[in-house]
C-alpha cells in the first residue's frame, strides 16, 4: 500500500525547522532539553490562553500552507492525549475540589481536533485514534483508508508528550513530538515522500516483551524522514519504508 506525503510539519521537543531536524536525524545534534511553546499564528489571540502545551504544539504543526482553508478531513492520533491535563483533573477530583470548567471541557481525546475545526471553520469529519504503542502507525493506516476511499487529500496529525511523573513506571522519558502530514493516495507533483506500508506476512504470535525503552515509532519515522533513510522502519505487524521524490 502506498501513501504520499505532500506537506509535512514536525515539532520535536522544540526542533521545528528542517535544518535542525536534519542535523538531529544525522546525529550531529541532540534534542534540546527545554523548549518554548509555539504560538499557532492563525489561532484567535484571545483564545490562545485556553490552549494547553499539548494543543498548542498540535495546532501549530497543523499550520501548513493552503491547509487551513482547505476544509480537509483530519485524522488525529495520540496514545496518551493531553495526559498532563487529565492527571490534574483526576487529582482535583480525588481531593474533592471542583473541577475547572475550561480544563474539563477541553479534556476529551478529540478536543484538539475540535479546536482546530473551530479555528479554521472546518466542518469536515475528524477521526481520533488511540491505539497503545502502535498509535502512530494505526493512525497512518486510518489516513490511508480514508485517502483511498474518497480519493482526496487528508490531514494526519500525531502528537504525544512525555508522560507525567505519575505514569513514569510505565514509560521512560520521551521527547514531546508532533508530526502533521498532508497525505494523498495518488502521487502528484506536490509529493515529497512516499510511504510504502505492508502488513507483515506472518503475524507474530509471540507476546512482545514489554520494554519501557523502545523508541516510539513516530520518532523513528521522523528520523528516517530527515536523514532520507530508505531502510525499513520497525513497527509491530507492519513493514514501513520511505521513498524520496
Amino acid at each position: 500500500m502506498k501513501l504520499y506525503i505532500n506537506k509535512i510539519h514536525v515539532w520535536l521537543n522544540g526542533l521545528n525547522d528542517s535544518t535542525s531536524l536534519n542535523s538531529w536525524a544525522n546525529g550531529d545534534i541532540e534534542l534540546p532539553n527545554t523548549y518554548a511553546l509555539p504560538k499557532p499564528a492563525y489561532y484567535p489571540k484571545t483564545q490562545l490562553r485556553r490552549l494547553s502545551p499539548f494543543s498548542r504544539v498540535a495546532l501549530h504543526c497543523l499550520d501548513m500552507p493552503q491547509v487551513l482553508t482547505a476544509s480537509l478531513p483530519l485524522i488525529f492520533a495520540s496514545r496518551h492525549g493531553d495526559l498532563a491535563k487529565t492527571v490534574k483533573l483526576i487529582k482535583d477530583s480525588a481531593s474533592g475540589e471542583d473541577l475547572s470548567p475550561t480544563q474539563f471541557a477541553l479534556s476529551v481525546h478529540n478536543a484538539t481536533s475540535g479546536l482546530f475545526g473551530i479555528a479554521t471553520k472546518n466542518t469536515t469529519a475528524t477521526t481520533t485514534i488511540s491505539a497503545s504503542k502502535n498509535t502512530f502507525i494505526e493512525g497512518l493506516i486510518e489516513a490511508l483508508m480514508q485517502c483511498q476511499k474518497n480519493h482526496e487529500e487528508v490531514l494526519y496529525c500525531y502528537c504525544d508528550f512525555d508522560v507525567p511523573d505519575e505514569y513514569r513506571q510505565y514509560e521512560e522519558k520521551q521527547p514531546a513530538r508532533c508530526i502533521a502530514l498532508l497525505l494523498s493516495a495518488v502521487k502528484s507533483k506536490e509529493t515529497l515522500v512516499s510511504i510504502d506500508l505492508s502488513p507483515n506476512s506472518t503475524l507474530s504470535n509471540k507476546k512482545s516483551v514489554q520494554s519501557k525503552q523502545e523508541t516510539p515509532p513516530c520518532i523513528d519515522f521522523i528520523r528516517h524522514m530527515y536523514c532520507q533513510s530508505q531502510e525499513n522502519i520497525a513497527c509491530k505487524n507492519y513493514t514501513l519504508s520511505l521513498g524520496f521524490h
Binding site: 471542583d98 470548567p101 475550561t102
Partner: peptide
C-alpha cells in the same frame, strides 16, 4: 470580551 466558559471558570474561582 470574556465568554460563557470564562463565566463558569470565574464563578468557581470567586466561590473558592
Amino acid at each position: 470580551g470574556l465568554d460563557s466558559i470564562d463565566a463558569l471558570e470565574l464563578g468557581l474561582a470567586i466561590k473558592k
